[in-house]
């Protein structure tokens, strides 16, 4: 169980997160949606320890994550794929993925068996193993970034816009990967601009706006919530709500994307 309680955090200026409460039960997939600048990525950074909250706590079961170093949080089993550029451009794909196992580097056998598993889940890692991270296409980088996160066999996986720059086939591959992890009991917290895809994958949905959680519920509830369109567009008046509804029109049954 991953739980944020009253989290306040920022980057030195004002508080970006203004008291965020969030609960992800074990083995669930929670998708956070919201307008640009809502603080979605910031939530993930607080969980992974890249950013320390000034108030509030982040708990994983009985372990307090907030206040611990990023390495300690990794060791506790939380890994993150950030929104942009996480790879080492001058290292080979293989080395990039191996770096994901930096914390288990002393156990060579474990490291190699994990690499083997990851290569099976993400074939690109083996296929492009010798190529430099910086020479991959945007979508390929995304896949390698996700692969790298699996090296530690995480309990909680944080994905910041995993669909960014992916073609339909890679999208399917990522969706399948997320489902497999879900089946293995991994708790997934993901941020997605592609609401249809994100909530379609997820079991639970969260809508954020202006550094606060505005709405939570099961993915289907959130998707069908009459207010989501207006919340998501960051406006509250009827015009934006209507425009949003029109934009959200083709939203199909979430089961379709999940199936």
């Amino acid at each position: 169980m991953l739980q944020l309680t009253g989290v306040v955090a920022g980057y030195g200026g004002g508080a970006v997160l203004q008291g965020v409460d969030l609960l992800c039960e074990d083995g669930t997939i929670t998708c956070v949606v919201g307008p640009n600048g809502a603080g979605k990525s910031t939530v993930l950074r607080v969980v992974s320890g890249l950013l320390t909250p000034s108030e509030g706590t982040v708990m994983m079961g009985h372990i307090k994550l907030s206040g611990q170093s990023a390495a300690a949080i990794l060791r506790a089993g939380v890994t993150q794929v950030p929104q942009s550029q996480a790879l080492f451009p001058h290292m080979s794909v293989r080395e990039n993925v191996l770096m994901g196992g930096f914390l288990i580097r002393r156990d060579k056998k474990l490291l190699m068996s994990r690499l083997e598993q990851v290569q099976q889940l993400v074939p690109l890692v083996a296929d492009r193993g010798a190529q430099h991270g910086g020479n991959l296409s945007g979508g390929q980088r995304r896949m390698v970034e996700i692969a790298r996160c699996l090296m530690l066999d995480p309990k909680v996986l944080l994905l910041d816009e995993p669909s960014l720059g992916l073609d339909p086939r890679s999208l399917t591959a990522v969706a399948e990967l997320i489902h497999r992890l879900h089946d293995d009991g991994v708790t997934v917290l993901l941020v997605e601009q592609n609401v249809r895809l994100g909530l379609g994958l997820a079991t639970h949905g969260v809508v954020m706006e202006g550094g606060k959680v505005r709405l939570t519920g099961s993915a289907i509830e959130v998707m069908n919530h009459p207010e989501i369109a207006s919340l998501y567009l960051g406006g509250t008046n009827a015009t934006t709500a209507r425009a949003a509804q029109a934009a959200a029109e083709p939203t199909p049954n979430p089961a379709e994307a999940t199936g």
Binding site: S69, P82, Q85, F88, P89, R148
Partner: peptide, 12 residues
Amino acid sequence: QNPSGAALVGVG
């Protein structure tokens, strides 16, 4: 090559 990427994999 990438300080924040390094932090993400636990490099102090």
